[in-house]
């Protein structure tokens, strides 16, 4: 092999490794909504967190989320204080975590644009309690990025989050958790 050819070979190899397929995708600005509105609520009981961390391992289908409870923003200051102080007690349990796997990970082609329906199964830890959670979600692969969307309900009593009797009929017993993350390839 002459010099010129080997140069091209090296260049091609370098190109391949740098633009090569990333095994992990992540974000640090994932969005998670917490919605405990019921039909009898006088208004929306809804908090948004835009600082969730999420990592997906494309090879194993492992999926992880971490979110700081204090980062949930509610429109009303009073509601946010109640959420933090009385419900999720974020001073005691500052973080919520989810660790799970995409059970049908083999059906997702992370290098081909498209929308893939996935089932995610794992453990959610919130308010110091850990519970099994299973949900359907969507992965949208587009231009080398992955959008992860899912929504599921959690029974607040499963996580020992109690709602005072006075407002019991105004706050839902289950909270809807809506996840939407735009994941980028992790360069390692």
């Amino acid at each position: 092999m002459n010099m010129k050819n080997s140069f091209f070979l090296i260049a091609a190899l370098l190109f391949l490794t740098t633009t090569g397929f990333a095994q992990k995708f992540y974000t640090k600005s994932g969005k998670i909504d917490f919605d405990a509105t019921t039909a009898s609520s006088p208004e929306k009981i809804e908090g948004v967190n835009r600082t969730a961390t999420c990592v997906v391992d494309t090879k194993t289908g492992a999926m992880q989320f971490a979110v700081l409870m204090k980062g949930f923003a509610f429109e009303r200051a009073l509601m946010e204080e109640h959420f933090n102080e009385n419900y999720v007690e974020s001073h005691k349990f500052p973080k919520a975590e989810f660790k799970g796997t995409i059970t049908n990970n083999e059906t997702v082609n992370y290098s081909k644009d498209g929308t893939y329906s996935v089932t995610v199964k794992g453990k959610l830890t919130m308010h110091g309690e850990t519970k099994d959670v299973e949900t359907q979600g969507k992965l949208v692969v587009q231009g080398g990025k992955v959008n992860a969307n899912a929504s599921f309900n959690v029974l607040l009593s499963d996580f020992k989050i109690s709602i005072p009797g006075l407002v019991a009929d105004k706050v839902s017993k289950t909270a809807k958790i809506i996840v939407s993350c735009s994941l980028e390839p992790l360069k390692s």
Binding site: K24, T53, A66, G71, L186
Partner: peptide
């Protein structure tokens, strides 16, 4: 609002 420790 807190700290997220992550080695990776």
């Amino acid at each position: 609002s807190g700290y997220n420790a992550d080695e990776m």
